[in-house]
């Protein structure tokens, strides 16, 4: 027993901080402190979802590679039959497609899982306390691992097309981080909205389908969208991020400075808006979910 006590005393010391909450008093500092102590939870939730997802499947994680591969082949065939590709001719279209699809997969996977994250874990939300934002945030983990698994596919395609990797490729992780941020924030906002209005759960698959065509996944904006309308497309931060990702990896036309600024502004608005909305809903989530 005495051997037990020593770590106890130590833990009392580290936790001997007053935390205050209730009636709108919960300070931002408390929220951040909480998120920090529960940081491992995000990964554990993510891995749990991953384990559960691929349990009792035959080919398991190979699905992560198979899906973008199949989609790439379908769109290549389709536009091949049409006789023209909605992209600049300087880079093989298959690579344009694959980078777009891989980026989109991170977003779509996170958002579709994230929207339902609170509702699916209702039992947890109403019975135990933990920072609830961990649930939608954790939904980024499985799509991210899927992306890692399917990166070799991109490598193979680069070899097949004999496309040299441009030196700007070192910047690619920043664009991926941008996509991760957008996906996570959309998941956070939609999860809160879905907790109150289950309609959101129905709308999201449809919105994702629309978003697939409104974002430059299977096309390049420079090849398809008239110049005077491009700013409109860049209000969707994924446009800038996907174009940027392609630019860094393949050397397709880079987004202009004004387009980059619009993208950054849109990302900031989404981040602040979604987090604030979530924290507001969080206060009575257990009563209303």
């Amino acid at each position: 027993m005495s051997a037990d006590r020593e770590p106890n005393l130590a833990s009392t010391k580290t936790h001997a901080v007053w935390q205050e909450f209730g009636g709108g008093h919960t300070s931002f500092w408390t929220i951040c402190h909480d998120l920090w102590t529960h940081r491992e939870l995000i990964v554990i939730f993510g891995l749990r979802d991953l384990k559960v997802r691929y349990r009792q499947t035959l080919i398991g994680v190979a699905w992560a590679v198979l899906q973008p591969l199949a989609q790439m082949l379908i769109f290549m065939t389709m536009f091949g039959l049409l006789g023209s590709h909605p992209a600049e001719a300087s880079v093989p279209y298959s690579l344009v497609l694959l980078t777009g699809l891989l980026g989109w997969q991170v977003f779509a996977g996170t958002v579709s899982q994230g929207t339902n994250s609170l509702v699916l874990n209702q039992a947890l939300v109403t019975k135990v306390y933990f920072p609830r934002i961990c649930l939608p945030l954790s939904c980024i983990v499985p799509p991210l691992l899927d992306l890692l698994v399917s990166l070799p596919l991109l490598g193979v395609m680069l070899l097949i097309c004999q496309q040299p990797l441009s030196p700007t490729a070192v910047l690619a992780p920043f664009f991926v981080l941008g996509i991760i941020l957008c996906s996570a924030m959309a998941a956070v906002g939609l999860a809160a909205l879905n907790a109150l209005y289950r309609d959101v759960g129905f709308a999201v698959p449809f919105l994702l389908q629309t978003g697939f065509f409104l974002s430059p996944v299977v096309y390049e904006t420079s090849a398809l969208i008239p110049t005077q309308w491009r700013w409109l497309f860049h209000l969707n931060p994924l446009t800038g991020l996907l174009e940027g990702l392609r630019w860094s990896l393949l050397g397709t036309p880079a987004p202009t400075l004004s387009e980059a600024l619009i993208t950054l502004a849109a990302m900031s608005v989404i981040t602040v808006g979604c987090v604030r909305y979530f924290l507001r809903v969080d206060r009575f989530l257990a009563d209303r979910i």
Partner: peptide, 9 residues
């Protein structure tokens, strides 16, 4: 798990 309407803890 849920927040008080008023008062603090």
């Amino acid at each position: 798990i849920t927040e008080a309407t008023s008062g603090r803890i």
